[in-house]
Structure formats: C-alpha cells, structure tokens
C-alpha cells in the first residue's frame, strides 16, 4: 500500500515537472526578441510571407489559446511539424533516438567496466598508490572537456595511428571513441563515489563482525560491502543516463554521430522552432522517466527507502 502511494506520488510529481517544462519550452520561443515567424524566415521576407507564417504557426491567436491547442496536440502525440525538414517532429526525434540510445548504452557499459573495479580497489586500499591513481583519474576525468578529450582521441587513434574511423555512424569501431568520450565524466563520478562508499561501508559493524566469523576477505568485499556501496552508484548512473541521452550534443557533434544531439544542433542552426520546442519537451520527458524508474528500482533494492 505504501509502495503504491509512493509510486502515485512520484508519478504526479513527474507530470507536474513535465507540465512546467512544456510551459518553458512554449514560452521560450515566444519571449524571443522579434517575432518567431520573422526569426524563421530569411531577412528579406515580405510582409505577406511573415503574415502567412504567423497564421501557419497560430501566432495571431491569444497566447493561452495557442498553448492550450499546442498541449492538446501534444497529448495526442502530435508535436507539430518541423519547418526545415517538413516532417513531423516526433518522427524526426524517434528516428534519431536509437543512435543516441546505442551510444549512451555503450558509454555507460564502458564507463562502469572501468570505474567499478577501480573505485572498489581504491576504497579498500585507501592511501595506497592505486588509491592515489584512482583519485587522480577521477579528477582528470572531471576536468577534461569532452571537446578536448574527444579531439585528442581523434588525433591519437584516428589521425596518428589510423586505427579508428574519426567520423560517422557504424559498427563497433565507430562507436568506440564517442562512447569513451561520453562515458568519461560518469567514470570519474562513479570512481569517486565507490571509493568513499566502500571505505565507509567497510567501517560498519556488520562488516567487522563478518570478519570475526572468519569469512574470506574478498567474499566480504564483494558479497557484503559492495551491495551497499553500489546503491548510490545506481542512482547516479540513472541520473547520468537521462543527461547522456539528451546531452550527447558535444560528443555527437565532434564524431558526426547522427543522434538526437546532432538533430538539436541542426534545429538550432536552422532556427527550426517547432523542432527545438519538441526536443526540449522530449528530452525532459526522457530524463524524468529515467529518474522515476531509478527511484522505483531503488525502493525495490533497498527496503529502507520504501517509507520515504
């Protein structure tokens, strides 16, 4: 019963957030200096062209009415038509989403494969060389601009060594560099978190008592300590997946990856406002959905969370 109430509350909160985002996405374009119709047309557009575009966009009606009709359409799954592509926004977005999802998935996998063992060892072996290396790795990972890191990879593996293709969509070789670039900040965060969580958990009474029972060291680390230390990692990874799905803009731009990020930049360059508005809404929806799922997952894994 408590779980059902929690889920319902969480769902309502998400809907409220999305409602807020829809207002922001809608008004951003309307508080723009000048007229959105003029922004989309070439500079030498005639009065008539402007009037026509305004009518097409419904700009001649009152703002509240515009918003209501927009939301009415959105709720029926109609996000409007892109001006540049002359195709429905939902079509465009969902065509690009798989490439971004694929990139995000591989990025998260690579980043966890590196960061989980590193974080665990650093946490257990506090104060050693491995620990120092892990801290340094995390700090550098946090400080590296993705632009710079991505271009360094291109310079090394693409240009100098010629091992990997530097641009475009394709198989494993294509995805490797963008995924590593995208996953770097996540690795840094996970290493830091696991390192301190592992250390804290190892001081807990129940771990100390497992020692007393004579259970092997690595069994304690992996079976008892890791279970608790991993909880925050799940939350952070979930939050990051939401951000990555929407925020691969820079990485996709550098590696010419045809995902949502590239579409966003194209929409911006073409001043394709219906498309920009839809991207804002969809990315926020993805973010909120992923976070809600993570919250739910959390209550399943950690019973202590249920009552909150």
């Amino acid at each position: 019963m408590a779980t059902a109430r929690f889920l319902l509350k969480r769902l309502l909160a998400s809907l409220l957030v999305l409602f807020g985002v829809s207002i922001i996405a809608f008004s951003l374009i309307r508080i723009a200096p000048g007229n959105p119709a003029m922004l989309m047309l070439p500079e030498n557009a005639t009065e008539e062209q402007i009037k026509n575009t305004e009518a097409k966009m419904g700009l001649d009606k009152p703002v509240v009415e515009q918003y209501l009709s927009y939301m009415g359409n959105v709720l029926q799954g109609d996000l409007g038509v892109s001006i540049f592509y002359n195709e429905t926004c939902s079509n465009l977005i969902f065509k690009r989403l798989p490439a971004t999802a694929q990139l995000t998935l591989i990025a998260v996998c690579i980043s966890l494969i590196i960061s989980i063992p590193l974080g665990i060892i650093a946490g257990i072996k506090r104060g050693t060389g491995v620990d120092f290396g892990a801290v340094l790795f995390a700090l550098i990972g946090q400080s590296m601009s993705q632009v710079w890191f991505g271009l360094l990879l291109i310079l090394l593996f693409g240009v100098t060594l010629g091992w990997l293709p530097t641009q475009g969509y394709g198989g494993f070789k294509n995805i490797l560099m963008p995924a590593i670039t995208l996953g770097l900040p996540l690795s840094a965060i996970v290493v830091r978190m696991l390192r301190s969580d592992m250390y804290d958990v190892m001081q807990e009474d129940y771990i100390v008592s497992t020692y007393a029972k004579g259970i092997g060291q690595w069994e304690i680390y992996l079976k008892y300590a890791l279970k608790n230390a991993l909880l925050p990692v799940i939350t952070v990874t979930g939050m990051q997946i939401g951000q990555l799905l929407a925020g691969a803009i820079i990485v996709e731009q550098i590696f010419g990856w045809p995902g949502l990020g590239t579409l966003t930049v194209q929409a911006i360059n073409m001043r394709d406002f219906p498309l920009i508005q839809s991207i804002l809404l969809i990315t926020a929806a993805i973010f909120v959905t992923v976070n809600t799922l993570v919250d739910i997952l959390y209550t399943v894994i950690d019973p202590r969370m249920k009552l909150n």
């Binding site: 957030v17 985002v21 939401g242 929407a246 803009i249 360059n269 991207i279 804002l280 926020a284």
Partner: peptide, 13 residues
C-alpha cells in the same frame, strides 16, 4: 529535468 546543454543552446540561439 531540462538538460543543461539543450537549454543553454536554445536560449543562446
């Protein structure tokens, strides 16, 4: 819930 970069480039554009 609005990704920083998406929001930022929209506003700047």
């Amino acid at each position: 819930s609005i990704p920083v970069m998406v929001f930022a480039i929209t506003v700047m554009a």
